[in-house]
Design a protein around this nucleic acid. Structure first.
Length: 561
DNA sequence: GGGCCCGCAGGG
DNA sequence: CCCTGCGGGCCC
């Protein structure tokens, strides 16, 4: 429900927040149910509109007139308890070839309670749809069954409802069919990344799962790694469309390949002296608080990573505004756009996708501060508010964000180190134009992901003679090989050179400043040339005879050349 | 489902 | 070069 710009949708429950201004509607807002208009059994609104569109005897003008007539009777569909296919019930399995969207449009798109097109729709296993707010209110009253058919609502769903994004799309399409003369005005694509790079397996484990492929594999977009803002079509040579809001990937590795969020473990991408380009909401920090159009994000750090851990749920010291946390503060200071991806691993948010990782558009950090986190140690906090020209994946709006006043954040009362932007933001809204750069975006300090790498360019400059010397000499002493040893990565060394390199190496135990044990370093013996671990090979290295060496050479493609 | 492990990318 | 990280597979 919007509390601005009448006509206002009237709903029975007075606790909606306006998605534009993020505030509850005024207390004097009338609380009346808009009376639904009865719909004949034979067909619902959307299928009727389809029939009109398909009628070849009508001109475009006549079609538009018919649609208007239908619309004037009321935007109420036939909600006669037909299960939607959104939960993958039997209907879609037993050979029904219609796609999910069409099927859902034939069923009810309306909320069971407020009888309007569901806003942020949630679908129960019995197939009935609710607005998120209506659902939360219903469950909050202690109800454990569907308000329509009394089927049980699973406990998990009651505590963690998820927005049905397929239904959002159906509603959006239904609206655009109704509102325009030429069918849907916009095509929203969800795609699976079916194309995988064909190289870069590194470990046997990775070969098995194919994950290292994505990890070190090709980045499909040509943005520089420190590129700010949306990834537009000009950076997408493979598809020519850019990264669209709502695009989904299987996991963080695949998300990385499309540039939306590059780090594959860390939640924050950025540089402390430059700014942060993107963040991931993936449930790693329990202080996070997601409201869709805005959310409260927690900084990184403050955790004990001893014992070779990559993450740790427990916080054992305070976070500071340094490293990635400082990068976020820099983006706040300048008002840079920050790409946001949500992961299915964020279990407590209704706005997270059911599976995989989804790009949700750009947000701006309006302010940041520190507060005591739920685990008792101080955490850095950031208020991010959406500012994208595309509508969010959970709303059936056809337009993107408008500037909105900041939400009321209760925890600010007890916050310290509060930081707010003082100058005008670099990413700003212009009436009639939308969101965009109000000044030059920060110049990239890195090369774009598309062009040839520095290594490739360097390779071209090497003469044939230099390349031969590099390939057939000892890679340590640069002389002709004496007692040649060819390590698994293909580099050649004199036996004596290799021995002397590793004679000084030993395993190391390290201590951190606070006395805690840091991650024990793996005892790695790396090829002096390309740093590949050759410790296993070194257990019993074999000296190559010249024949073997010659046979081996053609297969060797040095990564250093 | 929870704990463990560890390759990898990228910051500093 | 070392440190850090909201992954993801595997084992139990």
């Amino acid at each position: 429900m919007r509390c601005l710009n009448p006509p206002v949708k009237l709903v029975p429950l007075g606790d909606w927040d306006c998605p534009d201004c993020l505030l509850p509607p005024p207390s004097d807002m009338p609380s009346i149910v808009q009376k639904p208009v009865a719909v004949p059994e034979e067909g619902n609104l959307v299928s009727k509109i389809h029939a009109i569109q398909a009628d070849s005897t009508l001109t475009d003008g006549e079609k538009a007139k018919r649609r208007q007539e239908l619309m004037s009777k009321g935007l109420v569909t036939n909600y006669s308890a037909e299960a939607s296919s959104a939960n993958g019930d039997k209907k879609s399995a037993d050979g029904n070839k219609r796609n999910a969207t069409l099927e859902m449009m034939d069923n009810s798109l309306n909320c069971i309670f407020c009888l309007q097109l569901a806003e942020r729709p949630v679908t129960t296993p019995c197939g009935h749809n609710f607005c998120l707010k209506c659902f939360q209110r219903w469950v909050g009253q202690g109800k454990k069954t569907c308000g329509k058919c009394r089927a049980a609502i699973p406990a998990k769903m009651a505590t963690n409802p998820r927005i049905n994004s397929a239904l959002v799309m159906a509603i959006r399409m239904a609206r655009s069919v109704v509102n325009s003369n030429s069918g849907p005005s916009k095509v929203y694509t969800y795609r699976d990344n079916d194309s995988r790079p064909d190289k870069c397996f590194t470990t046997s484990r990775a070969v098995k799962t194919g994950k290292a492929n994505a990890c070190s594999g090709k980045i499909f977009v040509t943005i520089a790694p420190d590129h700010f803002g949306p990834i537009t079509a000009e950076y997408d040579p493979t598809r020519g469309q850019g990264v669209l809001v709502g695009e989904c990937w299987e996991d963080r590795m695949e998300c990385r390949q499309w540039g939306a969020h590059l780090p594959h473990v860390a939640g924050i991408a950025g540089q402390s002296d430059y700014g942060s380009q993107s963040v991931a909401l993936s449930g790693g920090y329990e202080d996070d608080e997601d409201h869709g159009e805005w959310f409260l994000y927690t900084g990184s750090g403050g955790r004990d990573l001893s014992g070779n851990k990559r993450t740790n749920k427990e916080q054992s010291f305070d976070q500071k505004f340094d490293k990635m946390n400082e990068a976020l503060r820099v983006s706040c200071k300048h008002g840079y756009p920050i790409r946001v991806v949500r992961s299915h691993k964020e279990k407590r948010s209704a706005y997270a996708p059911d599976a995989g990782v989804r790009y949700d558009g750009v947000y701006r950090i309006e302010m940041c501060w520190r507060k005591k986190g739920v685990q008792g140690h101080k955490v850095c906090r950031y208020l991010l508010v959406r500012c994208d020209n595309e509508p969010a994946p959970w709303t059936s709006d056809e337009h993107g964000d408008r500037p909105r006043p900041l939400p009321v954040v209760k925890e600010l009362k007890s916050a310290t180190d509060v930081f707010e932007r003082k100058s005008s933001p670099a990413w700003a809204y212009t009436e009639g134009v939308g969101w965009g750069w109000s000044r030059e975006p920060p110049a990239s300090r890195k090369t774009s992901g598309g062009g040839p790498s520095e290594a490739t360019q360097k390779r071209k400059q090497l003469s044939v003679q230099q390349r031969l010397l590099k390939e057939f000499g000892c890679n340590a002493c640069r002389k002709v090989l004496d007692q040649p040893i060819s390590v698994p990565c293909g580099h050649n060394f004199c036996k004596s050179c290799l021995d002397s390199v590793f004679s000084s190496q030993d395993s190391r135990e390290r201590k951190g400043v606070s006395g805690r044990t840091l991650r024990t370093q793996k005892v790695v013996k790396r090829c002096p040339n390309c740093k590949i671990d050759i410790s296993e090979f070194l257990v019993s290295p074999q000296i190559m005879n010249q024949q073997k060496l010659k046979r081996k050479q053609p297969n060797w493609k040095s990564p250093c050349l």
